[in-house]
Amino acid sequence: MISSKKIIQMAWKWQKEATNYQRKRILWPKTQENAAKAEGCSVWTKAEKGHFVVYSMDQKRFVLPLQYLKNNIFRELFKMAEEEFGLSSNVPLTLPCEGTLIEYVITLIERNVTKDLEEAVLMFIPTSRCHSSFDHHREPTNQQHLLCSY
């Protein structure tokens, strides 16, 4: 059963997704719901050439260009992920923040933010993480769980 709250949340996500698509780039994340539907809940889609995949705490799947790995904001998010979850190559690579924050960071990178703004965001990220609805129980336990979570 899906709660009404969840439906509202999803609607909001879809709306946002539509807006993002209009921004013409491929950067909008393919959510896991999509992946699960498309792949019959069993097979992973490999990221296209030159891309890597990360997940948010609310289990959104982001397919991002490799250059993002050089970005300071993403590097900070990776560092936080290491502190939060440790380093394991056997579980999905999850950043310790909500999808909306990752979306925001993507927009900033797309707009080619200045160094000053980047620094401001770097200072903001740890605080935002502390106030986000961080919940241990929602941490992905295995791939199947991730895919079939909706």
Binding site: A47, K49, F52, F78, E82, S89
Partner: peptide, 26 residues
């Protein structure tokens, strides 16, 4: 195998710099 688990291409995995690379394999 590590690239497969990270849902990416092996040729792309090899391009990742040391440091951040640790999030993809040991």
């Amino acid at each position: 195998e590590a690239a497969k688990k990270r849902e990416m291409r092996y040729s792309d995995l090899k391009k990742i710099d040391r440091g951040v690379r640790r999030h993809f394999h040991d």
